[in-house]
Amino acid sequence: MMHPAFLIIALLIVAGATAAMRLRNLIHCALALTCALGGVGLLYLLLGAQFVGFAQFLVYIGAVSILIVFAILLTHGMDGGGDTLFSRGRALGWGLSLVVFAVLGGAVMSSRMLPEGSTEPLASTPAVRQIGDLLMTRYILPLEIMGLLLTAALIGAVLLAMKSGASAMPHTQPGGKAATQPGRDGQ
């Protein structure tokens, strides 16, 4: 693996994720999240998973982060509310996650069951056709369930975000715009 590239991307991911969890301004948090998720997408490309990397960009940068930003604007939560920003027991939370990291990291570092793996580059990145064939044959049932799940999520999200009440016409109310947002993920 190209170590410099990996290090830069790892730094980008960790810095973005930390910023997303620590910044006070919610919009800045969402943009830092975008940065971290974009870094993950770049890492997929570096590892040779082209299709997943592009899907990551399309879904996370194009849809999820925009959705989060919209939700922040719609809930008027520009800044996280001053001193009510963090929960009580903030130190406890960070300490707990540090313990989790130590346990997981220790397990990874001391494990002897991990495959050695071939560090030489792959012969060829998997073709899109191969992925498509697998999706239509071996993974057809998960694919169908996924379609069902996304349709259910689409309808559910629209119903949840729609203004309740008989007079509410979702497409003429300002809320109707919000109601249509989640639909993007249902495709």
Binding site: L31, T34, Q50, F51, F54, A55, F57, L58, I61, G62, A63, S65, I66, V69, T125, A127, V128
Partner: peptide, 19 residues
């Protein structure tokens, strides 16, 4: 190999820029 997907994936960043 995934050219069309690439086009739409990078195109997604323009929305972020506008925002």
């Amino acid at each position: 190999d995934a050219g069309i997907l690439f086009f739409f994936a990078v195109g997604a960043a323009t929305e972020l820029s506008v925002f």
